[in-house]
């Protein structure tokens, strides 16, 4: 797969065709410019793009590839390997619900069923009002106080069905 030759890409710097908005395009270029000199820059750049845009748009991939002198296939391969990088725009808030064993021991499967039925979505889905996306996660390091979930970057433990509903409605009220 990996070739011995150091030059992996045809050095044409033309702008790849894309449907990125001007703001998205400049966020991607800004992340690349700021981070591309780091050794192993691709993951930091993808994190920066997702932090700015909440996801890594499909059309960001050729742009990042061009900036880093990588092939589109290489960048795509990396984006798709990691569960954390999203390929589509999420809801305003992302709920990461823990599915792992320690939370299972305290009723995570029931909480998962409640989450899906009350939000009327499956994992990786977004509610009809665009407020909440639901993602599975495999341990949040809160295994003594499960079941656990994370809303955006806020961790919650001992989450009951009622607490879940309250957390979701608080999130809906926030912008």
């Amino acid at each position: 797969m990996s070739s011995q030759s150091p030059r992996r890409v045809i050095p044409i710097k033309a702008e790849p065709p894309s449907n990125l908005s001007a703001a998205e395009r400049s966020a991607v270029l800004e992340a690349c410019a700021r981070l591309k000199e780091l050794p192993g820059a691709l993951l930091p750049i993808l994190h920066a793009v997702q932090e700015a845009l909440q996801f890594v748009p499909k059309d960001a991939v050729p742009l990042i590839a061009r900036e880093l002198n990588l092939s589109v296939a290489e960048v795509h391969g990396v984006v798709s390997f990691y569960h954390y990088f999203r390929h589509s725009r999420p809801g305003r808030h992302v709920v990461h619900l823990c599915r792992a064993e320690a939370c299972q021991a305290l009723g995570a499967p029931a909480l998962e069923a409640h989450a899906k039925s009350s939000l009327k979505i499956e994992f990786h889905g977004t509610t009809a009002d665009g407020a909440i996306s639901l993602e599975p996660v495999y341990c949040l390091g809160n295994c003594a106080l499960g079941p656990s979930l994370m809303i955006d970057e806020e961790l919650h433990g001992r989450v009951t069905a009622d607490r879940f509903d309250a957390l979701v409605s608080q999130s809906r009220e926030r912008a």
Partner: peptide, 11 residues
């Protein structure tokens, strides 16, 4: 990377 469920000592 502390991926194991049931562990949080690194954290």
């Amino acid at each position: 990377d502390e991926g194991d469920s049931g562990t949080f000592s690194d954290r």
